[in-house]
Write a protein that binds this DNA or RNA. Structure first.
Length: 176
DNA sequence: ACGATGATGAAC
DNA sequence: TTCATCATCGTA
């Protein structure tokens, strides 16, 4: 089976926007019910720091957001609109609240559809992105030319004042 | 264009 | 304890 280099904590501990951009082209790998599937990441959003009004962390440290303040490389999974699980990976330094929302992979557009397809639920919240938890990220050598990366404002955060229109959404245009 | 559907956080 | 608010999606 073709595998790649599993991304370690070092990768995620860097500045959130950089991590977001570099996650494009990486592979989200899911092992569930004895089967392993890999999905190339094509769409992400950065949620960066206490001042980011679009981030849950802007309303302080709470039971839900605790994981965002924790160590990088952990999953932050929460329920949105009462029915969709959202999958994020914690980024940046310890105690600094930040994460990247994985919005889409090749063939599966939309964060809610993505978690449904991969069988991701609250059970993965606060777990590490390692093989042991059944959900991790690999570099399989896909090259992502700068030209193929689109930046846009984030989706569904119109309430976030000036943060609503910052280009913190990254899309890998594969042309396919 | 709109309703489903429930956790979350802030107000009371 | 109540209430408004959602980092969405399928159907119309």
């Amino acid at each position: 089976m073709l595998t790649g280099q599993v991304l370690s904590v070092d990768f995620f501990e860097r500045p959130t926007r950089r991590v977001a951009r570099e996650l494009l082209g990486k592979h989200l790998v899911r092992r569930l019910h004895g089967k392993t599937n890999a999905y190339m990441i094509t769409e992400v959003e950065a949620y960066d720091g206490y001042n980011d009004l679009a981030s849950h962390a802007s309303r302080g440290r709470t039971a839900r957001t605790e994981v965002m303040f924790g160590k990088a490389g952990h999953w932050y999974v929460y329920l949105c609109y009462g029915m969709h699980w959202m999958l994020n990976i914690v980024t940046g330094p310890h105690e600094y609240p930040a994460a990247v929302l994985i919005r889409g992979v090749k063939g599966v557009g939309g964060p809610g559809r993505l978690t449904k397809t991969l069988g991701v639920t609250k059970a993965l919240n606060a777990r590490t992105a390692t093989r042991g938890t059944g959900l991790w990220i690999e570099d399989r050598g896909v090259r992502v030319p700068k030209r193929s990366i689109m930046r846009t404002p984030r989706v569904g955060v119109s309430y976030a004042k000036e943060w609503a229109h910052k280009p913190m959404r990254y899309v890998f245009d594969t042309g396919a």
